[in-house]
Design a protein around this nucleic acid. Structure first.
Length: 675
DNA sequence: TTAGGGTTAG
């Protein structure tokens, strides 16, 4: 919209609000609102406005062909139950007159609400005026109610009506009007509303300016918001929080943090917005650090803070802090908040504590599809596929409608357990019985399911039959299957597609190189490594982290930087002796480096998973489970090694890799070596 | 009066 147009519309609004209307103004109102709010339903309003001006104060008969637009506030006074429509109001009013009962403030408010957007509006206005109550307060109540309702456009309609009828409005009325504007789905012209409030002399009202900053940001006019923010003579924590919140939403966390540093006084929302921001951009460590600072400043977390911090704990596998937050949530009465519980559930799942997750799930007072889906997924990636399917049946029995994510969990369950037929069945019923259109993720799961099970030709045919273009995940799933089932030919076909889709993804080269190495095609393996060098593709270093006493320790292969490195090496050597006695032979084919065989052995023996596990053994008490998080999929050699270590030291070792959990106990893994 | 946020997969 041009500046001239904005000025023109602002001036028109100003004229309208000068309270001297006649019939001819009505079409302007309609025009303005259409321009302002792109609001097709304005036509009935225009008709009504004519009626207001022309009709007497008598109540019109209810018209059955028109939908009843009246809001229904909670009725508290028993007398108020006597009417719910303007027509019934007439009867109610007759009673009031007959019995000579004064109308209470509550009743007047109800009358206003009932008549706000009906042709009986002038009647209600008259009643309110006669009652000697503060008319503005009553209409503000209605405005507020409508602004908060599911139909905030009705608050805008009422606001315009109040202007046209010359009702005295104050800053509160404008505040509700702005709020309603921020909640409209489209047609938010912040500049017009801004001009309008300035023309009414509210240019330095902090509440209204905060409302304007908010209106600008939600309508995508961030620059205007910023300009207004910068020139505001006075700001409060709300002003700052609005800006921070929206910078975070835009992903501009650095800028948000810069503003956060400038807030004179921060409240829980300021902290929460920032913590959430760091979680959203994948910086959970920073989120937790900020949370610790917030605690130092004695700011009490609320439900949203808890959700954000738990998400950070889940990302980093920081169980101790997660548990602390759980206890705090219980003490603070957050147990009834389903979102808090869902995040708690997810945190336990991602920390590999399936039992704790299950007890959170079982104790939940209310469960949503998210709770069920999270639990199903948790069971699936922890090698409890059958339990995941049982839980799904229970969910269906309870008539909880599954969503697309639920089916991803189910397909994972089938995939990780090799339940091909069940997987096929779920894929079919997903769309047939539940009307869920398969997304690329579902196709990815299906290809994974078939490929892992060795049905590589079927997996390839499945990809060819897809209605959407297969992505890297889909071809990558086939490639993974090719590696397990040693099908070099199909792997080469998959890689062709993968390199076309994402030529710089190191993972594909690594898998192909491994496939060649396992087939003893050393020249081809070397060719892949050469290709990687030529394209400048570098293998993402595998890293494993472990949290001990709230501190996250990270290891990469061959890492000697840790202060306890000597102790780790010493313990590892001792373990290796015992492992060799039990038949352990290092698997060097997993090493994709141009180095000598002996070097490869040295390298694989110092893989990050092994270092993190040994560090855990040294630094945790006997019997304590060791929880490790790996950024990539767990390496095959480490998988074999950790099985043996769990047996030798009699400890449970839980490794969360990029795909799933491996729980090593007594020499076996929960994945049953099917991964 | 004004912000009022958040959860499952990928």
């Amino acid at each position: 919209m041009s500046t001239e147009k904005i000025t023109e519309v602002t001036n028109l609004l100003w004229t309208l609000s000068s309270f001297n209307f006649n019939l001819n103004n009505n079409h302007y109102i309609a025009t303005i609102i259409i321009i302002l709010f792109r609001w097709p339903t304005i036509i009935p309003l225009e008709t009504q406005m004519h009626r207001y001006t022309l009709s007497s104060t008598s109540l019109p008969l209810p018209q059955t062909h028109q939908p009843n637009p009246h809001p229904k506030p909670p009725l508290q006074n028993p007398l108020l139950h006597t009417f719910k429509t303007p027509f019934e109001l007439k009867q109610f009013h007759t009673q009031i007159i007959k019995t000579n009962t004064p109308i209470s403030l509550l009743q007047l408010t109800h009358i206003a609400s009932i008549c706000a957007l009906t042709p009986s509006f002038p009647y209600a206005t008259k009643l309110i005026q006669l009652s000697c109550t503060n008319e503005t307060d009553i209409w503000n109540h209605c405005l507020r109610q409508l602004a908060d309702s599911d139909t905030p456009n009705n608050a805008v309609r009422l606001f315009i009506q109040l202007c046209t009828q010359g009702v005295c409005l104050n800053a509160f009325s404008f505040s509700h009007f702005i709020k309603a504007c921020t909640r409209l789905e489209d047609g938010l012209y912040g500049k017009i509303v801004h001009g309008f409030i300035e023309k009414h002399g509210f240019q330095s009202n902090l509440y209204l300016l905060n409302g304007m900053v908010h209106l600008y940001v939600v309508s995508g006019e961030f620059e205007s918001a910023r300009q207004l923010f910068d020139k505001m003579p006075e700001r409060d924590v709300v002003t700052w929080n609005i800006m921070i919140k929206h910078l975070v939403k835009r992903g501009d966390v650095d800028e948000a943090y810069a503003l956060f540093g400038r807030i004179p006084e921060r409240n829980v929302r300021s902290w929460t917005a920032m913590i959430m921001g760091f979680v959203n951009i994948g910086k959970p460590k920073e989120a937790i650090e900020l949370f610790n600072k917030m605690e130092e400043e004695n700011v009490r977390p609320n439900e949203v803070t808890v959700v954000a911090v738990l998400a950070a704990c889940a990302d980093l596998c920081v169980l101790d802090l997660g548990k602390k937050i759980h206890e705090f949530s219980n003490r603070s009465g957050f147990k009834t908040n389903v979102r808090v519980c869902n995040t708690l559930l997810d945190m336990y799942i991602k920390c590999g504590c399936l039992e704790a997750a299950r007890s959170v799930f079982d104790e939940m007072e209310e469960r949503t599809v998210v709770s069920w889906s999270a639990m199903i997924q948790g069971l699936a990636i922890n090698g409890k596929g059958e339990e995941a399917l049982t839980l799904f049946s229970k969910m269906i029995d309870l008539r909880i409608k599954p969503n697309a994510v639920t089916f991803i969990g189910l397909l994972h369950a089938c995939s990780h357990m090799g339940m091909v037929n069940e997987g096929r069945e779920y894929f079919t019923i997903m769309s047939k019985d539940y009307g869920i259109v398969p997304q690329i993720e579902h196709y990815g799961c299906m290809v994974d399911l078939l490929s892992r099970a060795g049905l590589l030709t079927e997996a390839r045919a499945f990809i060819k039959s897809m209605h959407i273009k297969p992505n890297g995940v889909v071809w990558g799933a086939l490639l993974g299957g090719c590696r397990v089932h040693k099908n070099v030919e199909l792997a080469e076909e998959a890689i062709e597609h993968l390199l076309e889709l994402d030529p710089l993804n190191d993972g594909y080269y690594v898998v192909l190189s491994n496939i060649y190495a396992e087939a003893k095609r050393w020249e081809d393996a070397a060719r892949v490594r050469k290709l990687m060098r030529e394209k400048g593709v570098k293998k993402t270093p595998g890293s494993s982290s472990i949290s001990v006493n709230g501190v996250v320790h990270e290891f990469v292969a061959g890492d000697e930087s840790h202060p306890q490195t000597e102790a780790i090496q010493e313990r590892l050597e001792k373990l290796l002796e015992e492992m060799r006695l039990r038949g352990y032979v290092p698997k060097t084919s997993v090493v994709v480096l141009d180095i000598e065989e002996s070097e490869k052995v040295k390298f694989v023996l110092r893989h990050s998973e092994k270092l993190a596990a040994v560090f855990g053994l040294i630094n945790t008490g006997k019997g304590t489970p060791i929880r490790i998080m790996k950024n990539l999929r767990v390496c095959e050699d480490c998988h074999a090694a950790l099985k043996l270590i769990s047996e030798i030291v009699d400890r449970e070792i839980v490794v969360r890799d990029r795909n799933r959990f491996h729980c090593f106990k007594n020499g076996v893994c929960s994945c049953k070596d099917y991964w």
